[in-house]
Amino acid sequence: MHELSVTQSILEIALRYGNQNSAERITHLYLVIGDLSSIIDDSIQFYWDIISRGTIAEGATLHFQRVPTRMVCFECNHTYLPERGTLACPNCNSIRVQVSAGDEFRLDALDIETDDD
């Protein structure tokens, strides 16, 4: 899997925003990860602990907000979480449906420590 390169991207973005905001330390990262994005929290955390060493983000806590896969039905406008083995609308059985959430993969915010002045 590609969690190492993905974790490097997270670190790069965090350090860029940290430096822009004169951070002495980055203490928390708030990640939003959809279930369709095929990313495993534990793997990110594993690589994070290694590659953040020696940076201002060392020891920062990663928060994962998981977003379940949501579908919306074109026929009856029903929004639902798909069941295993089918994606069809559970309300009207239509297969004219669309994924409406679940492929998010972004860094929403950081908590940083700065000098008082």
Binding site: A14, G18, N21, T27, D108, L110, I112, E113, T114
Partner: peptide, 8 residues
């Protein structure tokens, strides 16, 4: 030190 949240 103060802690602030930065929107990304």
């Amino acid at each position: 030190m103060k802690t602030i949240q930065v929107s990304v």
